[in-house]
Design a protein around this nucleic acid. Structure first.
Length: 417
DNA sequence: CACCGTCAAGTCGCA
DNA sequence: TGCGACTTGACGGTG
């Protein structure tokens, strides 16, 4: 079983996708931005490989305006070599890639111009994966679209349009239940009609359940036959609700115990799980290590990145974690204990005075001029007097870390909580 | 430097 | 009927 993350990695320098606004589009800006994004994707794949992750979703932002008339570049030719190299990197590392056009790609719209653009967008996504030399098990995830007051008609339109898609798109397309309109049973009905694999999303299903009452496991089993040999392993999406936000919002991180319960209930056969969560790779590593074990080295590396978050709560707790890792002859055994202890410590309240000390010591690594020192000292004082939230202080420190490329700070999880 | 409104995509749902 | 929410960085303007 592979556990994956989507589009971006926290704490990986030079990995973010740049975008353009329409007013800035030109041949030069398109070329420059595409080149940067491809280089950043390479960094993401290197990171994914180094951390032994096997599932990753490529951001649709890879090629700016990739499916729009605003971009007339034959980018797949201009960057043919780069794309092939990236695909090779993924293939050699056994990484399964995917893409996921957003909410604005609507195949079943009654407006023909919307449908035309949606098809162009799917062609763009398929072209990225194909240009990378990847097989059809590297998929494109799509929702059914709008309901327009008549889901039956909307479903019929989806099917009709699906049938007109280029084969290269059909070969990669997989369909997902959404959190508002099309339930898992409705998606399954459409998918069976057109012969397309289905991705079960547990959170969408929780919020937008079908009238048939089956368990998550039963729905996953119902989706299983839609996956044929050429499609690769069955994929599902797993997410948890952010309790502070509207229904459907992804949680900041994956809470371990509910994930473990979900995981234990999964079928014995091999399934790929794409996590949808704000902290991306951080949760992917947590869930992977917790269920499949991590080496002492892997856990130690994670611990260094989490450490300042524990320090700003209660520095005394550091020793317990370090003792656990020190006594660990076998990383497999302590992985679960490590992440459970970590979660427990991270659930503690931040201590303002400790957060101040932590911020000071991290800022010290980044400061390179008296002016910077004055600015950060001022920000820390503002935080001390509760004039700004900790988040803002961290942002200032991270801006400086970014400016001076302070890797130790940039790769830590310090700004995440 | 920090902050804020706007943009760009399509649909839904609430005044 | 019209506009806010959804998403997120880029961008331009202000303080």
């Amino acid at each position: 079983m592979s556990i994956g993350y989507a589009c971006l990695a926290v704490g990986v320098p030079e990995s973010e996708m740049k975008s353009l606004t329409l007013s800035k589009v030109s041949e030069k800006t398109l070329l420059d931005t595409s080149r940067i994004n491809l280089a950043h994707l390479k960094n993401l794949l290197i990171y994914t490989t180094a951390n032994n992750l096997k599932l990753f979703r490529i951001s649709s932002d890879l090629i700016p305006f990739g499916s729009s008339d605003a971009n007339t570049l034959p980018w797949w030719e201009v960057f043919a070599e780069n794309l092939l190299e990236l695909g090779k990197l993924a293939t050699e590392s056994g990484i399964r890639l995917s893409m996921h056009p957003g909410q604005y790609t609507v195949l079943n719209s009654p407006r023909p111009e919307v449908v035309t653009r949606a098809i162009a967008d799917l062609v763009y996504h398929a072209r990225v994966l194909t240009s990378m030399g990847l097989g059809n098990e590297h998929k494109i995830v799509l929702h059914i679209g709008g309901a327009y007051g008549d889901k039956v008609e909307a479903s019929k339109r989806f099917v009709a349009t699906y049938l007109t898609l280029p084969q290269g798109v059909k070969d990669r397309l997989i369909l997902e239940n959404d959190d508002k309109l099309f339930t898992i049973s409705e998606v399954l009905a459409i998918a069976r009609e057109v012969g397309c694999p289905v991705v079960f999303d547990n959170l969408h299903h929780k919020i937008n359940p079908s009238k048939e009452w089956l368990s998550d496991l039963q729905w996953i089993e119902a989706c299983a036959p839609t996956w044929k040999g050429k499609d690769g392993k069955q994929k599902i999406h797993y997410a948890q609700q952010d309790v502070r936000k509207r229904p459907g919002s992804h949680s900041p991180t994956i809470s371990l115990e509910p994930f473990l319960l979900f995981h234990e209930a999964l079928p014995a056969r091999d399934i790929d799980i794409m996590l949808e969560v704000k902290d991306k790779n951080i949760s992917a590593l947590k869930c992977m290590h917790a269920t499949q074990g991590g080496t002492v080295e892997q856990l130690g590396e994670q611990w260094l990145k989490y450490k300042p978050l524990v320090t700003e709560r209660d520095p005394e707790k550091i020793w317990k974690v370090e003792d656990l890792l020190k006594d660990a002859a076998d990383g497999q055994v302590v992985s679960l204990a490590f992440y459970r202890l970590l979660e427990k410590n991270l659930s503690l309240e931040v201590f303002r005075s400790q957060a101040e000390i932590t911020a000071t010591s991290i800022a010290e690594k980044c400061i390179q001029s008296p002016a910077e020192e004055r600015r950060i000292t001022k920000r820390i004082a503002e935080y001390k007097q509760a004039q700004i939230p900790l988040e803002k202080l961290k942002q200032s420190i991270m801006n400086m870390a970014n400016k001076h490329r302070v890797d130790e700070v940039l790769t830590s999880y310090y700004p995440m909580m």
